[in-house]
Design a binder for these strands. Structure first.
Lengths: 269, 269
DNA sequence: AAAGATTTTTCTATTTTATGGAATTTTTAT
DNA sequence: ATAAAAATTCCATAAAATAGAAAAATCTTT
């Protein structure tokens, strides 16, 4: 007879933060948040005050609206994470979007999804699954996530595929044959590309960023329109992206502290 | 004899996150974090595992290093974005830095400071108080924060001035007469500018972004060198910035949900 | 402007979780 | 191989979190 609805305060606090982060209604009053996070109002209030104390949540007394605090943003933006992928890739993204005249994305894996860590806009408006920074996409959808998936260690890759197959089919009508075909193609070419993607008129090309074990930790991805990515341009862009991805790979923990050998490379793939 | 060392788990968890975010040593093993966050190893371990479950912290088993997780950055990317200001201003910043050939900043107020929400680099290297994204500056220092300060409601403005005067003097040798003079000038002109700033050789110009009550919520700021911002160019740039700021103002919650009237404007200031 | 409805906040007895130190295992350094 | 350090488990006790009731504040409607 365990009616334990008990969850540690930490979990519930992050439920609240996520409720704030994923909000699309613009309604973030106490009751809204309590409902969306599955808490009683009194519990939600106490936790929110704790979060406000930590600077993670701001409260607009006038309109009675809670929102994620600037402190949170500051903390992350200033995170002097050496080997921080986003900082390492920022100049690469800027340079590539300037020279290629297209939009560049940096994607990393997060569980069974890929998350957009950064993007740099080109002059042409595009649509993408990844969307803005922080945007998520199921691994298997879009060139970027496929590039990562293809270069995951086999056991992990299989786990991701098995978990994602139902939602890949439900949400995108992608089946196992298609996914495995894509992965095989990416592993052969060293890059992911489809001029006829799931978004009409949109095309993209992506390469993995590998860690020192040769496993994908992220992907460098370019999004553009179908007519801007013809058969002629594709291998050229692929080469440029590969080269940049290798540069980044070498910068991510340049030497393994144990093995003392340089990072893995995609050369010859 | 209250030796109460008790602190809620939430606080301690954020102590750990801050320890991770502000780390400069690159040493983030359990003991390091426990020491820096002021926790016992067993407490730190339990909390870190909770944070890992939430995706806020990643653990590299091989090297026994903790680091901030993707969820943390995902949440942070959604934070500090009142009214979607950052997203709304991103294209404006890109456009302006391209056409003006200078570096653009988006600043918002955070308590008694201003925080850099975004920036877009121009071709000329500049120095600024704001520094990088996430950087802070005392309200009253630099054109951007003064632009916000000048268009705060009077009571709030006075509160900020009173609080900040000691540190403005301690850190920057700015006294009350100077600050009040600046504010008066900004309110008269509608923009903040100093060709001879506190940073030798650096100049800047900033305009407030107003909410529907006519109160500053943010500032659009251009940073450049003294020789690039002469008396001739200044009013031109000011006009361009003002126009962009008004566009943004109108987009930030275009209609008040209660009053149903458009956002305030700086026209005629 | 008053009454009703909703939301926010306070309070508290009870349940649940968090705590740090001791003991144990694992890893690292010598 | 041995010692030292770090990571992890365990647990009795202390502390914090919980939900509900009730009060206060706020918003709605007339």
């Amino acid at each position: 007879m365990d009616k334990s609805q008990a969850k540690p305060a930490l979990t519930r606090s992050f439920d609240l933060l996520r409720a704030l982060a994923t909000d699309e209604s613009g309604e973030n009053r106490l009751t809204d948040l309590a409902r969306r996070a599955g808490l009683t109002p009194s519990t939600a209030l106490r936790l929110l005050r704790g979060l406000i104390n930590e600077g993670m949540v701001d409260y607009d007394e006038g309109r009675r609206q809670y929102r994620l605090g600037i402190e949170f943003f500051t903390l992350a933006a200033r995170a002097g994470n050496p080997g921080n992928l986003r900082d390492l890739c920022r100049p690469v993204l800027l340079r590539l979007s300037a020279t290629l005249h297209d939009t560049l994305f940096l994607l990393v894996r997060s569980g069974f999804d890929a998350v957009c860590l950064d993007r740099s806009e080109g002059p042409f408006p595009i649509r993408s699954f990844t969307g803005d920074i922080g945007g998520r996409v199921i691994m298997g959808v879009g060139q970027g996530s496929v590039a990562i998936l293809a270069f995951l260690p086999e056991a992990e890759r299989e786990e991701v595929i098995r978990f994602n197959l139902p939602r890949l089919y439900d949400q995108h009508r992608l089946d196992e044959v298609f996914i495995r075909g894509e992965i095989a193609a990416v592993r052969k070419l060293g890059y992911a590309s489809r001029s006829s993607g799931l978004l009409p008129g949109m095309a993209g090309i992506a390469v993995p960023i590998l860690d020192r074990e040769g496993q994908a930790v992220a992907a460098l991805s370019m999004g553009t329109t179908t007519e801007r990515l013809n058969g002629e341009r594709m291998p050229i862009v692929a080469d440029i992206l590969k080269r940049e991805a290798e540069t980044v790979s070498r910068l991510v923990n340049p030497f393994d502290p144990v093995l003392r050998r340089p990072a893995a490379s995609l050369s010859g793939v």
